[in-house]
């Protein structure tokens, strides 16, 4: 069973039926293509199998929530909370994402080719989120670990109450949230950024890499202890 592909037409089925079919076929096929998604919510929810999935269009809220090993590619845009609570795997979004993309992820990687809404990566604990365009207000709010990279600009109150993790930004930062500190990057950071970004052909020159800055917590324990 190599390189066999299974197609599911979502136009006439419910999210429950869609997810049941995805779950049932994930272990049997190498790749699943979801046709006519019409921005369906909760697509590919709680999948723990390793499989390639292509969403041929746009997805609604919570696409790929709690994904653990699957490689998901969405050809269009996604609604709020894309890749919510992922523990592994990948979510590649060719278009834009709504608010809260990568909320609470523990692992895995999320790429948003264009812009993301507000509160990207809120309460994330680990993993990587890469935004090709801008990311809205409160990006990285309550962040507890992991890494966000934004190639465009960041909105207001970036890194609000961040206690661990890092947010890299190439563009402008409108304002910083409580406990957030904006500093220059060093060679280690550049190496890390190159490793993360080179696989996604963003056409960044080496001087672009010099222009990144990073947002980190001022204190690891801003509320309690030292």
């Amino acid at each position: 069973m190599t390189n066999n592909v299974y197609e599911i037409d979502l136009s006439k089925i419910t999210p429950r039926e869609a997810n049941e079919s995805i779950r049932e076929n994930a272990s049997k096929y190498d790749k699943i293509i979801l046709k006519n998604p019409h921005s369906m919510h909760y697509l590919i929810a709680g999948l723990v199998d390793e499989v390639d999935i292509e969403v041929d269009g746009s997805a609604g809220y919570f696409v790929g929530t709690m994904n653990d090993k699957a490689n998901i590619k969405v050809n269009g845009n996604v609604g709020w909370f894309g890749g919510d609570n992922m523990t592994g795997g990948k979510l590649l979004i060719e278009g834009s994402a709504g608010d809260g993309v990568g909320q609470g992820i523990y692992g895995g990687e999320i790429l948003v080719r264009k812009d993301a809404g507000a509160r990207t990566g809120e309460i994330m604990k680990n993993g990587n989120i890469i935004i090709g365009g801008n990311s809205g207000f409160m990006t990285g709010i309550f962040m507890m670990g992991g890494c966000i990279v934004v190639l465009g600009n960041l909105g207001k109150d970036v890194g609000e109450s961040i206690i661990r993790g890092v947010i890299y930004v190439l563009g402008e930062v409108e304002s910083l949230g409580k406990n957030a500190n904006l500093i220059d990057i060093d060679d280690e950071d550049k190496k890390k950024l190159k490793g993360l970004l080179s696989k996604y052909d963003f056409n960044l020159s080496s001087s672009d890499y010099d222009n990144f800055r990073k947002i980190i917590p001022k204190s690891k324990r801003p509320f309690y202890g030292k």
């Binding site: 999210p15 429950r16 049941e20 919510h41 929810a45 709680g46 929530t65 709690m66």
Partner: peptide, 13 residues
């Protein structure tokens, strides 16, 4: 309501 639906999908009802 959306949260309940999301958790239902994850746990397959």
């Amino acid at each position: 309501s959306m949260k309940i639906s999301q958790l239902r999908e994850i746990t397959d009802w």
